[in-house]
């Protein structure tokens, strides 16, 4: 991770063996509306990212920023419409065959946001976990049950035999999410996409789930993309943080650098808006939070944050600012630092 993303070798498999994922110019657009009023929603616009083995990247954005679209595109739940995805040095076709998908998903798994909707209410925990074990041929049929028990133990649902035959309605939200994590682990992936895995859980349980993710990730040298709107949570689990706004990456860098020294005005806004109980009693503090994320069907050519930016100027309008290197892998896309 020394050179900026654009400098990756062209057309060939990346030689860097520590690199798990490389995304170049990833884009996703949808067509919405009925005939005659069809509009294109550009949910994701040229996202570049690299992720090393065992690294945790926090992807932070508001709703409508494209963060969930990014996860779904990377999981091929909605195929991306442009760009390149390189997984462990191999370029993935954007229109994959079922075989391509099967191979890809044995390496890339996902944890869903809603622990209630992501488990089939008619399937026991055992049945849910045995699915990936069987289809990715992780464990022979005779050992499926033992393998499921082992998975449950690894996510802290002990004794596992108490949980194997339970239905989702017999589990709490936190326990369901642990089952969801176990299911993602079952395939023994290299990369897990965690799409707001704690946002639907009580604050008191969020930390235990984040700790679990960290333990698992460190114990297995897993790479993790932690998608959230909570900057503090991203800071807690991530090595690096990327800020996504209106489908564009605006800033990326080591978590500590982004938290202590946010460069982009949007990152600064997020930093200020985040509740911070340890930061002191801030009741009187004002901040300007007018405006909302832009309509993705009518994006102007310049920086997408311009309409809300307190420091917007003429230079922001004509085109998207280029990336600026700030040192130590910290990069920002804002004309203020030209």
């Amino acid at each position: 991770m020394t050179a900026p993303v654009q400098a990756a070798p062209e057309g060939s498999a990346t030689t860097d063996s520590a690199l798990v994922l490389e995304v170049r110019g990833l884009s996703k657009s949808f067509t919405v509306g009925s005939i005659g009023r069809r509009r294109r929603v550009r949910a994701l616009n040229g996202v570049d990212l690299r992720l090393e083995r065992g690294e945790v990247l926090g992807l932070v954005g508001e709703s409508g920023s494209g963060k969930t679209t990014f996860a779904r595109a990377l999981a091929f739940l909605d195929s991306p419409t442009g760009g390149e995805i390189w997984l462990e040095g191999v370029r993935q076709p954007l229109q994959p065959t079922p075989r391509d998908l099967h191979r890809y998903r044995s390496r890339v798994q996902m944890i869903f946001q809603d622990p209630y909707a992501s488990l089939d209410r008619l399937h026991t925990v055992y049945r849910t976990l045995s699915q990936p074990l069987r289809s990715f041929r992780i464990a022979p049929a005779s050992q499926t049950r033992a393998a499921c028990a082992e998975l449950l133990e690894s996510v802290g649902l002990v004794p596992a035999t108490d949980f194997l035959d339970r239905y989702p309605h017999e589990l709490s939200g936190g326990q369901r999410q642990r089952v969801g994590i176990a299911r993602a682990l079952a395939a023994r992936p290299a990369l897990i996409l965690a799409d707001e895995p704690t946002s639907m859980l009580d604050v008191s349980i969020r930390l235990t789930i984040m700790n679990l993710l960290l333990d698992l990730q460190q114990g297995r040298a897993l790479s993790l993309i932690f998608i959230t709107h909570d900057l503090a949570g991203a800071n807690y689990v991530s090595d690096r943080i990327a800020i996504l706004y209106a489908g564009h990456l605006l800033e990326i860098g080591p978590a500590s650098a982004l938290m202590h020294d946010p460069y982009h005005p949007y990152t600064q806004l997020l930093r200020k808006a985040a509740p911070d109980p340890q930061g002191g009693f801030r009741r009187g503090e004002r901040f300007d939070a007018s405006g909302e994320p832009p309509d993705l069907t009518e994006l102007a050519p310049g920086c997408p944050f311009v309409p809300r930016c307190p420091q917007a100027r003429a230079a922001c309008h004509p085109h998207l600012p280029a990336w600026r290197e700030l040192g130590g892998q910290h990069r920002v896309r804002c004309v203020l630092y030209d």
């Binding site: 999981a75 739940l77 099967h102 044995s106 909707a117 990936p132 990715f136 969801g180 079952a186």
Partner: peptide
Amino acid sequence: SQAFVEAAQLSGES
């Protein structure tokens, strides 16, 4: 489009 069906897809189910 339910999450549990998408999760089953990711689990490699046909």
